[in-house]
Simulated assay, not measured.
Amino acid sequence: MLEGSRIAAGHWEGVWTGAAEPAFQVLHQERALPGLSCEALGEGRWRLRLPIPAALLSDGVQTFLLRAGDDTVGHFTIVSGQPLEADLRAEIDLLRAELDLLKRAFRRHCVETAG
């Protein structure tokens, strides 16, 4: 379970609670980002840290998905440029990313069960 997250000094940070060291990746527009680190805090807690590439920051909404295998277990959103109304665009961006995930899983299921 992702307990908290923040962005500080160009890095996203979050705390994960789980029994074993997590195997995560962070995706932005379906591309995995390098540099995700995981540090044990003790008692099944892990600090996740990711440098946010400056090249990904531009006007608008940028949504980053925290994935464990095929499951989305968290996300963070960066809004820059002109103020946006009530983060509605961030939610739409997240829904699009989730829909893309479901489409890929459905297509994979159809291929695996065909024949």
Rank of each mutant, 00 (worst) to 15 (best):
L94F: 03
L65C: 04
S80V: 01
Q25R: 15
L101R: 13
G69T: 07
A19S: 10
R96C: 15
T17N: 14
K103H: 14
L94Q: 00
D93K: 10
A20R: 13
E39L: 11
L101F: 06
T17L: 12
V61L: 06
R67W: 13
P83A: 08
A20I: 08
H75F: 14
G69V: 12
T77D: 08
R67S: 07
V61M: 08
L41M: 10
A23V: 11
Q25L: 09
Q25V: 15
R96Q: 15
G44T: 01
L102Y: 11
T113P: 01
Q82C: 12
V26P: 02
R31W: 05
E98S: 08
G81L: 02
L65S: 08
H11G: 09
W16P: 04
G4F: 10
H11C: 11
Q62Y: 01
A40I: 12
P22V: 03
M1G: 14
A105S: 13
A97K: 00
S80C: 02
R89W: 05
R45G: 09
C110I: 13
E3C: 08
R67K: 15
S5W: 09
F106Q: 12
W12S: 02
W16S: 08
R108L: 08
A90H: 00
L94R: 02
R107I: 13
V79H: 14
F64V: 01
E85D: 09
G4H: 12
A90W: 00
R6I: 10
L99N: 15
L66T: 03
A32Q: 00
L95K: 14
D93E: 12
L101I: 07
S80G: 10
R107V: 12
G14L: 07
L84M: 11
T113R: 09
T17M: 12
K103E: 08
L101E: 11
A32D: 00
R6Q: 10
G4Q: 14
S37E: 07
G18W: 00
T72P: 06
I78Y: 03
Q62N: 04
M1V: 13
I92Q: 06
A9L: 07
G14A: 15
P51S: 02
P22T: 06
F24S: 01
D100F: 08
T72G: 11
R107P: 06
P83Q: 05
G74N: 01
G10V: 01
H75L: 14
L66K: 06
L33K: 00
G115I: 00
F106R: 14
E13Y: 12
K103L: 12
S37Q: 10
D70V: 10
L48M: 12
R67N: 07
L41G: 09
E98Q: 11
Q82R: 15
C38L: 13
D100W: 09
E112Y: 04
A114T: 04
A23K: 15
Q29W: 01
K103N: 14
S37N: 02
E3W: 05
G74R: 02
V111W: 05
I92K: 06
L99Q: 13
V79Q: 15
K103M: 09
R49G: 04
T77P: 02
D93G: 09
L65F: 05
